[in-house]
Design a protein around this nucleic acid. Sequence first.
DNA 1: GCAATTTCGTACCGTTTCGTACATTTTTAG
DNA 2: CTAAAAATGTACGAAACGGTACGAAATTGC
Lengths: 203, 203
Amino acid sequence: MSDSPRKRGRPATIDTKSAMHAMVELFRDKGYAAVSLDDLSEATGLSRPSLYRSFGNKLSMYVGAMNAFGEDVAELALPKLEAEGDLQTALTDFFDAMLAIYYRDSDIAPGCLVFGTAPSHADEDEIKSRLKFGIDQVDARMRARMKLSFPECNTARLTTAAHMASNTLIAFSARAKSGATRSQLSAIGSESARTIVMLLRAD
Amino acid sequence: MSDSPRKRGRPATIDTKSAMHAMVELFRDKGYAAVSLDDLSEATGLSRPSLYRSFGNKLSMYVGAMNAFGEDVAELALPKLEAEGDLQTALTDFFDAMLAIYYRDSDIAPGCLVFGTAPSHADEDEIKSRLKFGIDQVDARMRARMKLSFPECNTARLTTAAHMASNTLIAFSARAKSGATRSQLSAIGSESARTIVMLLRAD
DNA sequence: GCAATTTCGTACCGTTTCGTACATTTTTAG
DNA sequence: CTAAAAATGTACGAAACGGTACGAAATTGC
């Protein structure tokens, strides 16, 4: 950002970026409560006090992981949705890009950190409100993209179509965690995209 | 069931039925890992050794809770789906019956034990396979019900419609946990039902 | 070189965790 | 009335938990 004012003491050697990435993967695999600070320490290579210094307590580590995961989604998948042109293609490509994240090349899919693990820990207010933000975000982006391709479609129908597209994505996480293959979900995604466009086109 | 052969020792005083119900509610609120055996002991009124004797270890308690929850769904909601007559009405009524379970009269919705909390703990094989069973069950029942109302509809379209209806239900759990109101989800349910019937009717 | 400053991990604390051994209570069989 | 049988909770143990005080290490300013 700004130029370096050359700080005073011992220089930091911790790579918070890669540490946060390791935390995201661990939380995706096992959820919030089942992950211990020792697990996080081992996965990141950082000592437990270092974790506290860099990320606060366990809860804020998890919320931070949700934000980091959201940034990955915004960078890797959202552009597919917001690409101009054919809506059905945009939706299909977006679903496939999300599945690439959900499956992480692994055979056992870690799924979605937000839609997959957060609902189980939503008794924590911070997690609940971050989950709500994620859902609202997807609903809003979907709706905006549909309005782009169908500008004179009526409000209620746009909202319904957006909800159905979001529901498809949300359900993907549970399906992935249950053992569904990536190609199975990709097929569901393209079928849903076709149906949703049909709904928007209907007289 | 069969007549009583009059067992030998001290008669059991534990009400396993109501104990399991209390366990379901606790697991719905906090997930699997965040619930301790002391929590379960307090909620059920049973001592920790009694829990072990009646239900095995913590993992089998959770799987047992998933089964008990599934039985409630089969009893309270599935009949609405499988009612004869208008498909759109059956779907709408089924969604509303599921929402009655997901919201439990409470203001803060506990959501679905299977679709809401299990994905977060699917690294346990028993939980993962029980989750898969739940999803497969919903997909299959949906598809059978749609075939009932649209017998000559082609296979692929029936499957797509069933998946979209299941996805609606699965997403309800995450949405409920995020703070969505019951009437909001009820509206999404009836809109989705209308769209799915439209898909099945299309030329 | 010496003090101030910042980073970092060892070692520790009190609490909570899951799971069980064992004595106690309540019943039936004879 | 006594012995066998089954159910139940108290009390305990070893391990893991989240979180932190504190001293060692590494740098800059003078």
